[in-house]
Design a protein around this nucleic acid. Structure first.
Length: 835
RNA sequence: GCCGAAGUGGCGGAACCGGCAGACGCACGUGACUCAAAAUCACGCGGGCUAUGCCCGUGGGGGUUCGACUCCCCCCUUCGGCACCA
């Protein structure tokens, strides 16, 4: 028998598809479009199992949707700027561009070996000038709208990467890329004003029904909006105003002290020339040396020092001490907080440590907290006490009333505060998009005029001897003339964060060769948004937040009609082996190459989709892979055994005249039912739930049913029902085609078909064929299964109940009991409740 | 600490709206084929018991219901996010 040999047939069909430019995106503006996109990779040179998983998911969807009749856009590109290329250059003296290009070639070959159906005509590579010039163009658009600006600020510095990082790129004090400890550094840097979009980024999460809840919650937390009030205290000794932000203006009467961040400008002013000056200065210096994690860790003990100065509470004129504290952050709010120990647990512990007074101003409904010392802060709602004219008011109302009272006197206002910071996009590295800015001694900061774009990244540097900011060393790049006055000027030498590239690449795919704009309106209006985006959860905040920001900005600029870039998002789980992430050090790495070599791409694709639902983590199992390979061989063998059914092919093919077919017997009816059940389940599982694992198991069941049929069927019956059986076998190929594209293409052609199976339209199921004459119904007594009955499917409830009562064992359970109640679920169950 | 997700056979997982828990696959066992093995095909496969049947069983405890993996309350464990955010 003809053996299943993926090593031979996979390259054969890959070549065929390539030759016929098979996966080119169609021009069919009249057809419904569907844009499937997997997060494009960094060209590291090798595919890993995480890649294989995300591409397999995307490819099944793309192939399925094409068969469903959609005009599908399924492109691939390269997130090609970034540190590894530069580091390779520094370590091995290779050219980053060449290094990147050869990696791309290698990964592309691997992707093709997986049988992925990309439209390579739309391939894009972010490190090529024809892409990154539009980064610069978009940057200038931000700049002209006042949304790109430069400021001196304390920023996150990664010593290993020798550059700064955006807040999103620091994970609990460590660099997201290399896990080095990040330290603060004061630098003049470019920022994008993402905070202007805080509310829209937060509120529009509601529009994203097709996103996993957890991703939306992570973004919500990251933006961190909280409603409260600004309240202005006054420093008694100097008369300085001292604003604080609080979410609990209702507790203002409970303030017993104030705390300033060590970096707060008032600290020095209040202590200068006082006996405490030396002590405080030492404390502040110690704080500024301490790393961010050490200072902001929840475990770190709160430390406070009295400045000697006092603040006047605007609501009652009370004087309270002002302290400096390690736990107050200059970067949030005003860098000063009011201490209300009775109603904030942190303040409570702090006050107890330093013997500061604790004053209850909110009472719970059932208790008077003022009678005895508190054990812990009371943070829940209640009624205001010890609060002058506000006494007796509900505290929620009190928030509004007190803020209004303060506002009237110019000492407070409602305020919405966010955790989100502006996006720091400068990087002190070489392999990135040059920021198109020129500094002129006379004209100041001058944007590069649009017609001068792109500002090309110089090539041919010897990076091995350069420590940082290579462009600073490149005289010919640095020196230029001012576009305004023509005088000598110098260029900005920082490059852009690579997340800039990935924030809009999905838009470029709609018009990748456009040289007049990032992309034209019409293809954008047709293709955008991405209908289904697929990628790792690690970008829940980073890339996915930045992309949403870009989309909203470009919407405001009239470049796109959409407000959200990704209609549906699938955050796929990680690939583990033996309970641990695959890693060289653990020696548990399995590569796509090995799998393709040993079993073929179809087996690998099938396993990675079968082992687990896509959004869950997957545990790699070599045995499981073999099981999937066995299934493909089993399917293959089924066709080899019965290939005779297709030869000679009936002239009408599958669309043949059904009337001419013989009446199906019970076995054929059962097989037909199994086939339509499989069509229904596979369609539903792919389309509605992305549960490829259960879709595949449904195909397996169908194959099992077909084996079962042939095992029992007479030769003569097989001959008689050959058209029907051919149809069943072909349905297997069609259903399996998105998962195992090579094998199915081969079998399809072996069946005598000339067109590709991937051009076949997806079958629809016949509800009538799913109907059964007889069903098995469960009979319960008091909710416990006591028997099964075979009954006609269309039995009435009364008849069903009657049949259930007739069941021998059920009868014995009913003996001498009183029937209290009966429940019948047609075609499923009867429950008889007795006493 | 706060927020979120998840806990089901020896393993990966299934069970859509509250209706036979364990589909499908792996592992394992039995049989067929074979001189034999592999491959393949067929069958079996949660646990217990006084076994034609009965009892227990979806992290633990309670509840709602004729009936709960599924809904409600409390708790435990694991993973993820945020982490002194005022």
């Amino acid at each position: 028998m003809n053996e299943y040999n993926p090593k031979e047939l996979e390259p054969k069909w890959q070549a065929y598809w390539q030759e016929h430019n098979f996966h080119r995106t169609g021009d069919a503006p009249d057809r419904a479009k569907y844009y499937v996109l997997e997060m494009f990779p960094y060209p590291s040179g090798k595919l890993h199992m995480g890649h294989m998983r995300v591409y397999s998911i995307g490819d099944v969807l793309a192939r399925f949707l094409r068969m469903r009749g959609f005009n599908v856009l399924h492109p691939m590109g390269w997130d090609a700027f970034g540190l590894p290329a530069e580091n390779a250059a520094m370590e091995h003296g290779v050219d980053p561009a060449e290094w990147t290009d050869s990696n791309i070639a290698a990964m592309k070959a691997q992707q093709n070996a997986l049988g992925l159906s990309y439209d390579w005509e739309r391939e894009l590579t972010t490190c090529y000038p024809d892409y990154y010039r539009w980064n610069q163009w978009i940057f200038l658009l931000f700049y002209h709208q006042g949304l790109a600006y430069k400021k001196k600020a304390p920023v996150n510095w990664c010593p290993r990467c020798v550059t700064v990082l955006a807040n999103e790129q620091v994970e609990s004090g460590l660099c997201w890329r290399c896990s080095s400890e990040v330290s603060p550094r004061e630098l003049d840097q470019w920022f994008l004003k993402i905070t202007d979009y805080s509310d829209r980024l937060l509120d529009d999460l509601k529009l994203l029904d097709g996103w996993p809840q957890r991703v939306k919650i992570m973004q919500e937390n990251w933006i961190g909006r909280s409603y409260g009030a600004d309240i202005t205290f006054t420093v008694k000794e100097t008369g300085d105003e001292m604003p604080v932000f609080t979410t609990r203006p209702d507790t203002l009467f409970g303030v017993t002290y104030m705390v300033l961040a060590p970096e707060h400008p008032l600290v020095e002013k209040l202590t200068r020339g006082t006996p405490r000056e030396e002590e405080i200065r030492e404390f502040v210096q110690k704080m500024s040396r301490e790393s961010e994690i050490a200072r902001t860790s929840a475990e770190t003990e709160k430390v406070g020092l009295f400045t000697g100065a006092h603040a006047i509470n605007p609501v009652n004129g009370e004087e309270v001490p002002i302290l400096v504290g390690n736990y107050v952050l200059m970067s949030y709010g005003s860098g000063a907080v009011m201490g209300v120990p009775a109603h904030d647990q942190r303040d409570f512990l702090f006050a107890r440590k330093y013997q500061l007074p604790i004053r209850v101003v909110i009472n719970p409904p059932d208790k008077d907290l003022t009678l005895q010392p508190l054990e812990a802060a009371y943070e829940d709602p209640g009624m205001m006490v010890n609060s002058g004219s506000f006494n007796g008011m509900d505290n929620e109302e009190g928030k509004k009333a007190l803020t209004a009272w303060l506002a009237q006197r110019g000492q407070g206002a409602n305020r919405v505060m966010y955790r989100l910071r502006d996006w720091l996009i400068s990087r002190q590295r070489y392999w990135g998009t040059p920021i198109p800015i020129i500094y002129c001694a006379r004209c100041g900061t001058v944007p590069v005029p649009e017609e001068d774009l792109p500002v090309v990244l110089p090539t041919g540097l010897n990076l091995s001897r350069i420590q940082q900011s290579p462009l600073k060393e490149m005289e010919s790049f640095m020196h230029t003339t001012c576009p305004r006055c023509g005088q000598e000027a110098r260029r900005e030498t920082d490059t852009m964060d690579t997340f800039f590239c990935s924030s809009w690449y999905y838009m470029r795919f709609v018009d990748p060769q456009c040289d007049q704009a990032p992309f034209r309106r019409e293809p954008g209006d047709y293709w955008l948004p991405v209908d289904q985006y697929i990628g790792g959860i690690e970008h829940a905040v980073l890339h996915l937040l930045y992309s949403r920001f870009f989309t909203k900005f470009l919407y405001d600029q009239g470049l796109v009609q959409i407000q959200e870039p990704f209609q549906r998002l699938l955050a796929q789980g990680m690939v583990y082996k033996d309970g641990a992430k695959m890693s060289k050090s653990k020696g548990n790495v399995v590569t796509p190459d090995e799998i393709i070599e040993k079993y073929g791409a179809d087996t690998g694709r099938l396993f990675i989709l079968f082992a687990s639902p896509p959004e869950k983590d997957l545990d790699w199992s070599d045995r499981g892979v073999e099981g999937c390979h066995r299934f493909l061989r089993r399917a293959w063998r089924l066709f080899q055994l019965h290939i005779g059914l297709f030869q000679p092919l009936p002239p009408e093919g599958r669309q043949g005249n059904m009337d001419a077919q013989p009446e199906p017997g019970p076995a054929e009816l059962e097989l037909r039912r199994a086939m339509h059940a499989a069509i229904k389940k596979v369609t539903y599982d792919i389309e509605e739930r992305f549960n490829f694992n259960t879709a595949i198991s449904a195909i397996m069941e169908l194959v099992n049913s077909i084996y079962g049929y042939f095992n029992l069927a007479e030769e003569e019956a097989v001959e008689r029902h050959r058209i029907f059986l051919g149809e069943v076998l072909e349905t297997v190929i069609v259903l399996l085609a998105p998962f195992a594209p090579h094998l199915c293409e081969e079998l399809w052609h072996q069946c005598g078909r000339r067109e590709s199976v991937h051009r076949e339209s997806w079958p629809s199921y016949d509800a009538a064929a799913l109907k059964v004459e007889e069903v098995e119904v469960v009979v319960q007594v008091n909710g416990k299964v006591r028997g099964h009955i075979q009954v006609a499917a269309d039995l009435s409830e009364d008849e069903l109940l009657e049949a259930a009562r007739e069941h021998e064992r059920v009868k014995s359970y009913l003996q001498g009991k009183e029937v209290v109640k009966t429940i019948t679920v047609p075609q499923k169950l009867v429950n008889i409740v007795v006493r």
